[in-house]
Design a binder for these strands. Sequence first.
DNA 1: GAGGCCAGGACACTCAGTGTCATCAGCTAC
DNA 2: GTAGCTGATGACACTGAGTGTCCTGGCCTC
Lengths: 175, 175
Amino acid sequence: MNAAIVLFDEQGYEETTIAQIAEAAGLTKRTFFRYFSDKREVLFSGSEELEHRWLEGMAKAPVDAAPLSAVMAGVDPVAEIFVERHAFARVRSRIIAANPELQERELIKLQRLAEAIKVALRDRGVESNQAILAAEAGITVFHVTFARWVAQDDATAFRRLTDESLNELRSVTAA
Amino acid sequence: MNAAIVLFDEQGYEETTIAQIAEAAGLTKRTFFRYFSDKREVLFSGSEELEHRWLEGMAKAPVDAAPLSAVMAGVDPVAEIFVERHAFARVRSRIIAANPELQERELIKLQRLAEAIKVALRDRGVESNQAILAAEAGITVFHVTFARWVAQDDATAFRRLTDESLNELRSVTAA
DNA sequence: GAGGCCAGGACACTCAGTGTCATCAGCTAC
DNA sequence: GTAGCTGATGACACTGAGTGTCCTGGCCTC
């Protein structure tokens, strides 16, 4: 994974072959594919942890919390680990921003997260239609926040930026 | 495009090769790639029309419309053409639902639409942060609505389902 | 009818991704 | 300590997506 990111950053994602990554890591191409299902996946191995932490955070929300509040409780444990990964996130974001196929992968990871959140909401007793929309709204806030967080310099700002984005979403959707 | 959809439906997306599609259409593989940039794109050629209609609908919204209202005005011309495409949309959705790489493409098309909507909002004088969130909220409603529309039988229900989803989003985000 | 233009064919090539078998290190058992 | 098992990696061949390049033939214009 480290070998891949260095190469992507230096010479570009498209221009880097799996054979190069494997060689840099002292492995064969075949072994690369035993760890990552495809070339894009090497940049998204953190997504299981993200989902795990999000659901963990949601579990701590009070049982009577409103659906969207329960969803947003997932951000806390996530924002925590993001603090020390700001520099890394910026490099990674730059690589992704330059490649549509990586953006696709990022979007589907967010979508899968939204689906997991929806299930967690249903398990809390939230009705299905409501659950989808609360989950999607939370992911929208997260997505927008993430973009703002990598675009600025304060590594610790994630939590604050989340609240700002959430408030903006609330004011924009207020009838 | 017709040849491709028939083959995808009959034997599966993964199992269908470009050579087969090209042969069924009386062309060569090389010519396929002169019309479609990749294999997934053959299912998404309608996205320019979607974007075009959406922006057209937004242009008709009153200048003093709230951002999200302006966004949702884009649905009208879209819902119109959807009526006669319900059967097609169902086949297409079934194919997409079975293939993660097609879901990725669908998500990035929605994202591009959201970006175009954001630009249109900015052009209407909406502030940038507000514009992103209104655009993303509108796309969330559209995405959820589309899924509901293909899951039921009334081809003309799109407009109504949109309003229901929008109301649900509003109630879920109300503080 | 000579010249120019352009859509499509022919063909070779790269690279992502997969199936399959061989190898080798480490562990367990007796 | 050796026989046998297991799991990780290498070797290698193969398929299919996608691209570069050159060629051909139809059509349009003067």
